[in-house]
């Protein structure tokens, strides 16, 4: 694929597999590090709290969260579940490594979620890009943020 041409048009479409259906959009929040639920996030603010995490102090509320997946305690789903009840859940989830923690977590957070994309979303998508996830169609549309 011609990356330079894509950068000019500034729109990239990725194809993948639906994990949780639905369609939503928002600003991307990207991390190359896995996220812990229990002990890793504040369920009242949606902020990452894990020490030494590159997103420590940053909230995913309303953002399209792009990350490798889940790690840590089996309380993962319960904590993301609470972010939904508290209204601070992400707008959508895009991840690369399937586990029971992330599958159940995405299901109970009830946001559109996709995986198995045809290109690595961690490389293609940058924080600040505008991302639309149409999970039923299995597509992720990325409008690159204009960077000086």
């Amino acid at each position: 694929m011609d990356i330079a041409a894509e950068t000019r048009t500034e729109t990239i479409v990725l194809k993948g597999r639906k994990v949780v259906g639905g369609r939503s959009e928002g600003e991307a929040l990207v991390t190359s590090e896995t996220i812990s639920g229990w002990g890793g996030i504040n369920e009242r603010s949606g902020a990452i709290i894990e020490r030494r995490h590159e997103l420590r102090g940053v909230s995913f509320a309303g953002k399209v969260l792009v990350f490798p997946g889940a790690k840590g305690s089996s309380g993962w789903s319960a904590y993301f579940h609470m972010t939904r009840l508290n209204g601070v859940q992400p707008a959508a989830m895009i991840f690369t490594r399937m586990t029971t923690k992330i599958a159940l977590g995405a299901v109970v957070t009830r946001v559109p979620a996709v995986t198995d994309l045809d290109r690595d979303p961690l490389l293609v998508i940058e924080t600040g890009d505008w991302v639309t996830v149409d999970a039923d169609a299995g597509t992720v549309t990325v409008i690159k943020k204009t960077r000086p």
Binding site: S74, T100, L104, V108
Partner: peptide, 8 residues
Amino acid sequence: TNVEGKES
């Protein structure tokens, strides 16, 4: 067993 969660 897999690592299950509160809901599963």
